[in-house]
């Protein structure tokens, strides 16, 4: 790719729209995962008593196990949702941009 082509792409409003949409999406999704994992890790580090307490009296399910399973499940769900979102929104914007730039 030549410098002038790069320049052209960078200045294309569709490129800006694409990268902004993607950056926002990626940051949001990553934060969801990091916050979930953070709650789990900091929970076992600093409030082990809470993590060991049952979610309802008489239940064997503890907050710790619940949170661990939730982090695992949210990883699966977020990945699925991200792929759905990226296929629908992000790839359409990208195809449009590539057409503009004369690729494909």
């Amino acid at each position: 790719m030549s410098p002038s082509e790069t320049e052209k792409c960078l200045n294309n409003p569709k490129f800006k729209k694409l990268t902004r949409a993607r950056a926002n999406g990626n940051i949001l999704f990553s934060l969801i995962i990091l916050v979930g994992y953070g709650i789990y890790v900091l929970g076992i580090s600093f409030t082990p008593a809470f993590m060991a307490s049952p979610v309802a009296s008489g239940s064997s399910l503890t907050y710790g196990i619940l949170i661990a399973v939730l982090v695992i499940v949210s990883g699966m769900v977020c990945s699925g949702f991200y792929v759905w979102w990226a296929n629908r929104k992000f790839d359409v914007l990208k195809q449009d941009l590539l057409k503009d730039l004369g690729h494909e």
């Binding site: 999704f29 995962i33 990091l34 661990a68 695992i72 990945s79």
Partner: peptide, 12 residues
């Protein structure tokens, strides 16, 4: 849990 936190972020 560590593995399952890593993979989505690798994806994003």
């Amino acid at each position: 849990v560590g593995v399952m936190a890593a993979w989505p972020v690798i994806l994003f």
